[in-house]
């Protein structure tokens, strides 16, 4: 491990949370593809520093691909103004402005998801600990943690179902669109239900092991900010604020 990596690994989880918030804010404020690409590049650099394989982000993006496509098309068609690139009859369908707005929306989603990956580079225990020491109630912190935990579970569940379908001899790639939609519609309810069942089991097993049984819980460790944390946090917040101000004025 290089010296740079060593310091990076030691950053407090809360510092990383601040980074994620900064990146997400920038992604929401910016509305041109060029700037959003810059934010994305910064996010990827950060992921690399924290030794998270950026190509893995694609795996997390996959479930959102269709959503992004739909958003892209909608934004393309319904954004007014700009030079017309494609007309259908009397209706100007695609304008250059529409394309820009559409790709911005897609980039925005990618940045937010990629930034969220930073949260996976520290352990979930640290995450809860960090929030609690910021006076966030433990229950709330734990809920946030569970929500984060459930993203991969949801993904896994979806992958399982897709595998199971293929194992029944159905070539999903070759199934025509109409039928595919029917299949997905059929799957939606069982998928959600299966997840809810898992959540319920988790809740029961948590209570069985004494979650919230005592009014105060104790912690073995304390997280401590060190100088790097303060510097990084300050730097990030300052730069983000400045960029936001620049964008607004």
């Amino acid at each position: 491990m290089s010296a740079k990596e060593m310091t990076a690994m030691k950053l407090d989880p809360r510092t990383k949370m601040v980074m994620v918030i900064c990146l997400s804010c920038l992604a929401l404020i910016y509305n041109t593809p060029g700037r959003l690409l810059l934010v994305l590049a910064a996010t990827i650099v950060l992921l690399l520093i924290f030794r998270f394989d950026p190509s893995a982000v694609f795996g997390y993006l996959k479930p959102f691909l269709s959503l992004m496509l739909i958003l892209f098309v909608i934004q393309c068609i319904f954004s007014p103004g700009g030079n017309v690139l494609l007309t259908v009859g009397p209706v100007p369908l695609v304008t250059d402005n529409g394309l820009l707005v559409g790709s911005s929306v897609v980039l925005r989603i990618i940045v937010v998801i990629a930034a969220a990956m930073l949260l996976t580079t520290f352990s979930s225990r640290d995450f809860i600990l960090g929030l609690v020491q910021w006076k966030v109630p433990y229950e709330v912190a734990f809920m946030v943690f569970i929500a984060l935990r459930f993203l991969p579970i949801f993904r896994e569940e979806a992958i399982n179902v897709i595998t199971a379908i293929q194992l029944r001899g159905i070539e999903l790639k070759k199934v025509p669109w109409g039928q595919k939609m029917t299949i997905y519609r059929q799957l939606f309810f069982p998928l959600i239900y299966g997840m809810m069942q898992k959540a319920q089991q988790l809740a029961v097993s948590m209570e069985a092991r004494g979650f919230r049984a005592y009014p105060r819980r104790t912690y073995l460790r304390r997280l401590n900010f060190n100088l790097t944390d303060y510097v990084v946090m300050l730097l990030f917040s300052a730069v983000t604020l400045m960029l936001i101000l620049l964008q607004i004025t």
């Binding site: 179902v161 199971a164 379908i165 029944r168 159905i170 059929q186 799957l187 069982p190």
Partner: peptide, 16 residues
């Protein structure tokens, strides 16, 4: 559980 993804038992058998 990993193999069951339909809304009813009959659908499950007929799915493939």
């Amino acid at each position: 559980d990993l193999l069951l993804f339909c809304s009813t038992v009959a659908e499950e058998i007929g799915f493939g």
